[in-house]
Amino acid sequence: MTTPNTDKTSAASGPAKPYSPLAAEREDVLAEAARWLAAGERVAIATVVQTWGSSPRPEGSQMAITASGRISGSVSGGCIEGAVAEEAMAVMTEGKPRLLSFGVTHERAWEVGLACGGKVQVFVEALT
């Protein structure tokens, strides 16, 4: 936001921005994804699209993953990020999006179940 009286408006730590760079995490994740893509990386984006119970991150939480293994953002409290990154590699290779489900009833619960007892669906798509 800027004031009409721009002479008296200050943003001492850099050029004025419409809002704080800290303001929106998803912006950071998408901006990071765009930077990675521009730098020639292959990038996938994972988004929490549905939750049940006490899932740690709400719908819309995002994580960007590169084929080289870089990660930004999160889709849980750390329980399923590894498994999502693994699936993201396949999505980047095949180019076809995947809808992943995680929860205590998941067959891989021992490996990637949510400790909180919630359930979550994560949509993974390649950035092209």
């Binding site: 004031t3 408006t9 850099g14 004025a16």
Partner: peptide, 17 residues
């Protein structure tokens, strides 16, 4: 700016602001 580094400041009167 010294008291509020990086914060958007306005010296308008509150009603004008």
């Amino acid at each position: 700016a010294e008291r509020f580094p990086g914060v958007t400041l306005s010296d308008l009167w509150p009603d004008e602001a």
